[in-house]
Design a protein around this nucleic acid. Structure first.
Lengths: 141, 141
DNA sequence: TTTAGATTTAGAATTATTCTAATTATTGAC
DNA sequence: GTCAATAATTAGAATAATTCTAAATCTAAA
């Protein structure tokens, strides 16, 4: 995926700036965090670096960065999306008690993608696996 | 899970009606549908059977029925929840083009639950697997 | 330097869902 | 059946997450 110019083939070429200052800030915030921030948490942190940045720009930037493959979005249940600096395919575990969300990597998941594709007759694009359970801290309530 | 009386062990027992008329209507609507309705679609259909039912009651009923194990809730991305008459553990496939959502059953998923539990050290409760791809109708756009 | 198109901004709008307070229904006890 | 307690329903307000709008600003290319 190209991040800079886009050749239109005819007429004047379009301006397409790369990472703007605000997008850079949003990316930095996500990259700097140990855990997976919500848009609202990203907004709070970004404002500390750039006090004039707007909420809409944070949302737009998160979408842009996700589409550019520079971060990924995690959704679960009806909770707010969280953003992950990890962009390779991976799985998640979420604590049903405290909400803690961790990344994990199960090589077997990719096999299930093929099995799911066979069973559904869908042309596979991605697979999403989330374990729900009690995290180490919460299992000893 | 008991759906009727609850014995409190001391003092006066609590009133706890079983399936009320409106809950029955909501359950019927979900059971009657081939696909997976959103709360708003359930509300529309339920109103045809019981014109005075309120939006809040539909939400409350869906939650009640889910907790009672009579239907299940499907969430994906930031879209509205969908409700499924299928209550046993199963997986889903969702079309990235038209949004079609289908149930599927992969026996292997349960093994991944154990693997995920081992990798994360979470005490496993449930596992959620969703394939994203192109449905048969959309793969030939 | 000009200009087309992209980006940002503040704030309004939308959507899904939950909450509130008043009313109604149901249960179990008498 | 009547009564009191509790639960459920209702309409509408409130909340939360996200997207949209329209105007202002920036950027890159000509």
């Amino acid at each position: 995926m190209t991040l800079r110019k886009k050749d239109l083939g005819k007429g004047r070429s379009r301006a397409e700036p790369a990472l703007t200052r605000q997008r850079g800030v949003v990316l930095e915030v996500v990259r700097a965090s140990e855990h997976h921030l919500t848009a609202s948490e990203v907004y709070d942190a970004a404002r500390r670096l750039m006090p004039t940045i707007s909420q809409a720009t944070v949302y737009n930037s998160l979408r842009y960065l996700k589409d550019a493959g520079l971060l990924s979005e995690i959704t679960f249940g009806n909770a707010a999306s969280r953003y992950d600096r990890e962009t390779g395919r991976h799985d998640h575990a979420i604590c049903s008690s405290c909400g803690k969300l961790v990344d994990l990597d199960l090589p077997q998941t990719i096999e299930l993608m093929r099995a799911a594709s066979r069973a559904s007759h869908f042309k596979p694009e991605s697979i999403h696996l989330t374990l729900v359970g009690l995290c180490p801290d919460c299992r000893s309530d």
